[in-house]
Design a protein around this nucleic acid. Structure first.
Length: 237
DNA sequence: AGGGTATTTCAGACTATTGA
DNA sequence: TCAATAGTCTGAAATACCCT
């Protein structure tokens, strides 16, 4: 599973703290650094959305400034700056170079959040897939990605912890819960969890992990239902 | 190197669907 | 209803990987 992270790359500390707080409220993993060079050294792959501040001087030479970010796997780059100081021609040049979008520095927080969710829809099965913790709609099931823990029975106060899942089992459950009550095809499971290697893995492997998952989850395991000819669906409650 | 665990594959049984 | 077919489940075994 991708450990998708949001990065704010800016020297304007008070400004990026505001965005950091916003991302954390959405339960997204967020990190920050000052320059693209620093980001390149820290980025370990796994997918990220980098919001990069650009000054008018840097915008005049996007090849140089954004070269540190170009070609990094799984990276979405959104550049932000002062639109009064960066003319449209330079914005176009930034996007033509490698940026995926340009946003004004004073963008409304709600608009920024919606834009980011739109980016996530392009690269992930659901925006909640990028969260560190997700819950089922009825609160019955909770998964903490950072602790790799599954909690079942949260709604009735008799919470039971499951920490014996293997990484693949955990990832499959996380994907199913992030797409609760939606049919998840085997193909989607393979592409989301195995990524580039999905072609080399048989669909029976998914079945095997789901079977094992059902066993470990006990009675709750029955809520992972097979959709004949399609895949699986998780129905909580 | 050896042991333990996770992952993957295979094969056979079982189940659902479809068309006659 | 029934047979053929496709899809799914599951146990066993092989393989990969990690840790000591």
């Amino acid at each position: 599973m991708s450990d998708f992270t949001f990065w704010v790359i800016s020297r304007d500390v008070p400004h990026y703290r505001v965005w950091e707080r916003m991302f954390r409220r959405e339960a997204w993993t967020v990190r920050s650094c000052e320059t693209p060079e620093m980001f390149r050294r820290k980025y370990a792959g796994g997918g990220a959305l980098a919001i990069v501040e650009i000054s008018p001087e840097d915008a005049a030479n996007p090849e140089k400034y954004l070269s540190q970010l170009a070609g990094l796997p799984g990276l979405i780059t959104v550049v932000f700056g002062d639109p009064a100081k960066i003319p449209p021609a330079q914005v176009a040049k930034l996007i033509e170079h490698s940026a995926d979008d340009f946003i004004p520095k004073n963008i409304d927080e709600r608009v920024l959040r919606s834009k980011i969710k739109a980016y996530l829809r392009r690269v992930m099965p659901s925006p909640s897939y990028a969260c560190t913790e997700i819950k089922s709609r009825n609160g019955e099931v909770r998964i903490d990605k950072t602790k790799r823990m599954v909690y079942i029975g949260s709604a009735n106060g008799k919470e039971k912890e499951f920490n014996s899942l293997t990484p693949k089992e955990f990832e499959i459950l996380y994907l199913l819960l992030s797409l609760e009550e939606q049919i998840v095809s085997r193909e989607l499971v393979l592409t989301q969890i195995w990524g580039d290697k999905s072609d080399a893995v048989n669909s029976e492997t998914v079945d095997k992990h789901v079977e094992s998952l059902r066993k470990k989850l006990g009675p709750f395991g029955r809520q992972i239902q097979t959709v004949y000819g399609t895949g699986y669906v998780l129905k909580c409650g």
